[in-house]
Amino acid sequence: MGLLSKKDTKLITDPLADNNPITIQVLGICSALAITAELKASIVMSISVLFVLGVGNVVVSLMRNIIPSKIRIIVQLVVVAALVIIVDQVLKAFAYELSKTLSVFVGLIITNCIIMGRFEAFALGNGPWRSFLDGIGNAAGYGAILIIVGFFRELLGSGTLLGFKVLGDPIEKTGLYAIGYENNGFMLLSPMALIVVGVIIWVQRTRNKALIEDH
């Protein structure tokens, strides 16, 4: 690792597993749940958050010494809001259908606690390069959960992945449907997102006992 020192690498890899923003830090849940019925939407959302958090962390980190601490929340909100407007306009221009699916949840990246949380916890106290890595790492950890949830919900709910029918055609009864498999439409409804995330947390904490809470 010439480019990244050991400490820097840790900034990226930690949030992917043992310090995951969603399952451990409990940040950014809202959007993680609402838009994961399709894998495609999850991926786009992850990329948007990656962009906003990466760039936002750098901007806030560069400004950290000139922001008066009393008004820092408003300053941070303006930074995020500006970045989110960029994301929203790009999505509207190049992926209009998808931006309709994501509807208000693109706007809600502004109040995605993951962003404010990382600004407060990291970017305000660290240099731009390290903040950038932290942003990328956390957004990737967030994206990883989103993609796992999106994968299972789309696969079990509609039998497709990214719109491709991987389990066969439910109308013509090919593939798995030929032997009587049925889609579980329940997976597409919003409450199942919560339960899928709950199960992910369960699996993760069973594998790593150190993460278990007392109550």
Binding site: V26, S190, P191, A193, L194, I195, G198, I201, I212
Partner: peptide
């Protein structure tokens, strides 16, 4: 109240809260 129940250790705290919320959401549907 759930503090007094015997929840599987790995689900304690966050995990069980997610699942309860999911069940409540099904109710609200």
């Amino acid at each position: 109240k759930i503090r007094y129940s015997n929840v599987p250790p790995a689900l304690r705290g966050l995990g069980i809260t997610f699942i309860i919320t999911g069940l409540m959401a099904i109710g609200f549907m």
